[in-house]
């Protein structure tokens, strides 16, 4: 039982390194790998094999969840290109964007206070569209090797996701 931990996630699942991932092929190969390495297949194995199976499936799970999620996948694509996304230092200096950011926060707080069902629905839709737009931009920049621009889009994404999460919490 062995696996190459140094290959990237796309190589692991034998798919082309690309922003667009065919979810069906990803899932199919993910299940194949799980069937081979999952700890359930090694309950009577040696401690060494058990530990190996644990490490391998942890790696497979992390890879799968990264490629399944657009945001995580974007960060990962840049990482492969040598662009380490700095989680802590993600300030955006674009004044226009900062302005939008403040407005969106305010809007989210107002809607959360009023609890109007239609407004809530509309706001979710709006956030979704913003995220989609962001991803599209990311893909364009990434494909053209404009990695600085692409990274900026990830930061914007992160901001939308955080607004969405906070909004979900207040919506409960």
């Amino acid at each position: 039982m062995t696996i190459n931990f140094n290959q990237n996630y796309f190589q692991l699942f034998e798919i082309k390194k690309n922003f667009n991932v065919d979810i069906n092929i990803l899932e199919k190969n993910y299940f194949e790998l799980q069937k081979k390495f999952h700890p359930d297949k090694y309950v009577n194995a040696t401690d060494h094999e058990k530990r190996l199976s644990l490490q391998i499936t942890s790696y497979i799970n992390e890879a799968y969840e990264t490629l399944k999620d657009d945001y995580l996948k974007s960060i990962y694509l840049l990482k492969i290109e040598g662009y380490e996304f700095d989680d802590q230092n993600n300030t955006i200096s674009d004044p226009d964007f900062l302005m939008n950011q403040m407005e969106l926060r305010e809007e989210s707080e107002n809607i959360a206070l009023k609890k109007d069902k239609e407004d809530i629905k509309r706001f979710y839709l709006k956030l979704n569209n913003l995220k989609k737009e962001c991803l599209k931009e990311f893909e364009k920049n990434y494909c053209n090797n404009f990695f600085d621009e692409a990274e900026k889009k990830i930061k914007e994404m992160k901001f939308f996701i955080s607004i969405e999460n906070d909004f979900k919490k207040s919506d409960l």
């Binding site: 700890p39 644990l54 490490q55 499936t57 942890s58 790696y59 799970n61 992390e62 799968y64 969840e65």
Partner: peptide
């Protein structure tokens, strides 16, 4: 909701 086993 992370699929287990997992590590971080």
């Amino acid at each position: 909701n992370s699929t287990i086993p997992t590590s971080s």
